[in-house]
Design a protein around this nucleic acid. Structure first.
Lengths: 107, 107
DNA sequence: ATAATTCATAGCCATATGGTTATGGAATTC
DNA sequence: GAATTCCATAACCATATGGCTATGAATTAT
């Protein structure tokens, strides 16, 4: 699915949103209030970012009483790593082609 | 620099722009006309995307006569890989902490 | 019961974004 | 040198985006 990459890159492109995700990665599960305290924007803004992160599969939510706990879903980053590797792979393969070409020319 | 990540994610978040970059990665150096043929948008749009990719360090341009050749700068993806690894690192370190905690509890 | 807390949604607004057409400058070609 | 090609920039437009305040639903505390 190419749409997966779109959603991932798009979701991580906003600094505030990425900050929230980093916060969840580095400090583990957090409530909305705790995240809001560090985000530097209003609570509704944080909730919207969390909704987007959730839609991208980057976070999971767990409801407990009147508070919602969010946690990072690291596995969702896999397509990003795959994409990077694919770009690097293209590079190498073109390099191999060049090498191959040079070999042929050498004969 | 945290701004580096911002620029990178932001630049790669647009599908058309990412498509152009992928094109350069997979097929090597290309002229603006060649890229425009595959991009599905107008030539000025392609030029604008290329300017942004260049500003993010993701591409290099080489002027030859009246045409400009662009090529991917794979090294610019390094911060992206670093960021991903850092997120994974947080995960592992929290896991280690948990492991450590369990060990202590076990005693 | 009533009040207070926690979060999500709704509605609004300013700005950013990506696209288009029009234009112009520089380099080839005729 | 006139015409053409290649690309970048300018000007403009519709929409998307991220922020805010206001509000409401659900839960907990008084």
């Amino acid at each position: 699915m190419p749409g997966t990459h779109d959603l991932l890159f798009r979701t991580l492109s906003d600094p505030t949103r990425r900050g929230i995700f980093e916060c969840l990665c580095s400090q583990g599960e957090q409530t909305v209030a705790a995240l809001t305290a560090q985000a530097g924007v209003s609570q509704p803004a944080v909730s919207k970012h969390l909704a987007m992160l959730k839609q991208a599969g980057l976070v999971r939510d767990r409801h407990q009483g009147r508070q919602t706990h969010y946690s990072a879903q690291l596995a969702a980053l896999a397509p990003l790593a795959d994409w990077t590797n694919r770009m690097a792979g293209y590079w190498e393969s073109r390099f191999d082609d060049l090498e191959d070409l040079l070999k042929r020319m050498d004969q």
